[in-house]
Nucleic acid binder design. Sequence first.
DNA 1: AATACGGGGAC
DNA 2: GTCCCAGTATT
Length: 366
Amino acid sequence: MATDCSQPALDSKWKQGFRRKLLAWFAKHERDLPWRKSRDPYRVWVSEIMLQQTQVETVIPYFERFVKIYPTVEKLAAAEESEVLRLWEGLGYYRRARSLHAAARRIVTEHDGKFPRNVAKLKDLPGIGRYTAGAIASIAFNQRVPILEANTIRLLARLLAYPDDTSKSTGQRILWATAEELLPSTEISSFNQALMELGSLVCTPLNPLCDKCPVARHCHAFLAGLQHKIPASPSKVKSTPLREAAIVVRKKNHVLLRQCDQGERWAGLWDFVRFEISSSEPRLLQRELKQKTRELSGVSIGSASPITTIKHSVTRYRITLDGYQTDYVSGTINQTGALQRWVSIKKLSEYPLSSTGRKLAKLISC
DNA sequence: AATACGGGGAC
DNA sequence: GTCCCAGTATT
């Protein structure tokens, strides 16, 4: 099946012109990005996972360091998960790192260290969905399969002048069908990358550079003057404020760390004792800190003195995190629930911490 | 179909 | 402050 019949076929000459213009533009404007130095599927894969919901400029230093330390899928498979998370620290969406590591082990054991070339087998690996499977298959193996992600959603929505919410299933179906219909018969790797590159550099969210766009004459939004209205902004969930406390419990030159459980935020990473707080009045707050620290960790603490306040966001939550320091008084760490450990301050650098955990760690070590 | 999952860049 | 980012997995 070449096309989705729910989508009216695009004119053949129009498609040819689009492909030709796009590829010519890409030949001239392709950025020199580190994951484009080769089409090694391993490097393509690592870059695609890092790039999920993460901007190119942010990924570059992480990618360089990662492939230097793990140059092959075998090296990655042989690593400890915590080492992988340590390299991922600060990049966010840590499940990506855990899935990447798990997938590396499966590629080595189930596929003899070779990447599956077809989309179905790629999608079967953890952390690889429809986009990433298409990206690896097309970019690394030049297979004729479509991709659809942030850049191309915007680009294709404008190209069609698609007026509705592109995140809904109808919009997704239409845009995937369009991405497939536009595919040339050769040069798929360049074509798919060119779509993303044009979306990223020219067909930008705000103030698209239509006068620099090689396919402006193909673009129904541009031709109708609707490029600023399309794509429609999706309905957004409003954020919820949250107050939390992080307690650095000190025992001589050690501090108490806890490894976040599966199913909670920062799964697999380590953090200081951390919980939501409700009290405002100082006396009550001290009681709450002691009580919740005891509940969560098993240890009793003295009075907690503030270190700093960090404001940050996690998905839809706007968190105000108060960091405290206090001395261990008594008790032993819980053996049930999440793994906990007394860690010497010197060794904090070896542990993968959340971004806020790392900020607190830097503050106490000096 | 909706929601959880991080953190930072750009304006 | 807000919006956005080379999405995926789970509910």
